[in-house]
Simulated scan of single mutants.
Amino acid sequence: MFPIGDDNSSRTITPYINYLLIALNIFVFIFVQALGTNPYIIAGFSTVPAEIISGQDIVGNGLGPTPVPVYATIITSMFMHGSIAHIAGNMLYLWIFGDNLENVMGHFRYLLFYLICGVLASLSHVFVAALLDNGLFVPSLGASGAISGVLGGYLILFPKNRVRIFALPFIFRVPAVITLGLWILTQIVSQWNSIHGQEDTGVAYAAHIGGFFAGIFLVRSFAKRSAVFQG
């Protein structure tokens, strides 16, 4: 079961930034990461919690040299993905939900919102890794944290928007508050299971949760005052 579309009837601008973010992620995955097969790019530009905590580049423990300041990896990691399924899922969510936020924020505000949510999502992952003393040397990458912020913002501004959900063999129209509410619930449950050793998928659920709540708390500050709040 996954979303395939939403209500864009109120959109009045072309979401150039959303298109650009999608294109940039795809470009990096294909031409820089070689479809996710370049281990040097992954090791060098992903966020490693231990490096963020120490502020030092760590070589060893399966990690190679980082060619940029370690704190810059919080940004670079947001534009890399580990597999075709990883980027396909992320870009689908960004395509569906991002344009609505860009419409009520404007291009620059939306870009800033997206990046800030991504940064806060990565820091959430680093914090949980340090708190649990787990995964400190595991590279983290992907746009999921920033996109989670988009989902959190969408939930606040467009809770009644109908989201088209595909579940074999049917397509349902479900209010966003239910669709995204169930999504964040699964992230919280998965994080809980991960902490208690019942699930180990390698997914940075803390980043998803941190990004989502960052989007919830920040979205009204970035939306234009003329925006219509449905909630």
Rank of each mutant, 00 (worst) to 15 (best):
S54Q: 13
G215P: 07
N90A: 08
I17N: 02
R11P: 00
T201M: 09
V138T: 13
D99H: 05
N8C: 00
Y154H: 14
S54L: 02
P15C: 07
S9E: 08
I74W: 04
N38Y: 03
A50D: 10
I188K: 01
L185Y: 06
G202F: 11
N25K: 06
V70F: 00
Q198T: 13
G118L: 13
Q187G: 09
N25S: 12
D200W: 07
N8I: 04
L21I: 10
F166N: 05
S77T: 11
L157Q: 08
Q56R: 04
L111V: 00
L131W: 13
I156H: 10
W183L: 14
P175L: 08
G135H: 07
T47P: 07
I171S: 14
H208T: 01
M105E: 01
P49T: 11
D6V: 12
Y71F: 10
A23W: 05
T66I: 11
G5D: 14
A88W: 10
L111T: 05
D57F: 01
N134I: 02
P15V: 03
L185C: 04
I165Y: 14
I184V: 15
P159W: 10
V203C: 02
A23V: 06
T47V: 15
M78R: 05
I13W: 03
L21N: 12
D99F: 01
F29M: 06
G106F: 06
L63K: 02
A129K: 12
S190Q: 00
G89V: 12
Y40D: 05
T73V: 06
H81A: 15
A34N: 14
P49F: 00
I42F: 03
G197F: 03
G60T: 08
Q33N: 12
Y205W: 07
F166E: 11
G149L: 01
F212T: 08
V163S: 13
G36K: 00
A146Q: 05
H86C: 02
F212Q: 13
V219A: 11
R225L: 13
R173G: 02
N90W: 01
R109P: 02
G118S: 04
F45H: 01
L94H: 04
C117W: 05
N18G: 11
V128L: 15
M91K: 08
G60C: 10
G82Q: 11
A146I: 12
L131I: 06
F213P: 06
I75K: 06
V119E: 06
G89S: 11
G98C: 03
G106M: 02
G210V: 00
R162W: 01
I17E: 00
P69W: 04
L131M: 14
L63A: 11
I4R: 11
G118T: 13
F213D: 08
I209M: 02
P139A: 09
N134V: 04
G231V: 08
P67G: 14
I58F: 03
L35D: 02
I22G: 09
I84K: 06
G211F: 07
T76C: 11
G89R: 10
H208P: 03
G36S: 03
S83T: 08
I184C: 14
L168K: 13
I22N: 15
F27T: 01
A146F: 03
G215N: 01
P139N: 04
Q187D: 09
F222L: 12
V219Y: 01
A143S: 15
G211D: 03
I209S: 12
I17H: 00
F29K: 03
N161D: 15
Q187M: 14
H125Q: 04
A146L: 09
L168T: 13
T201D: 11
G5T: 04
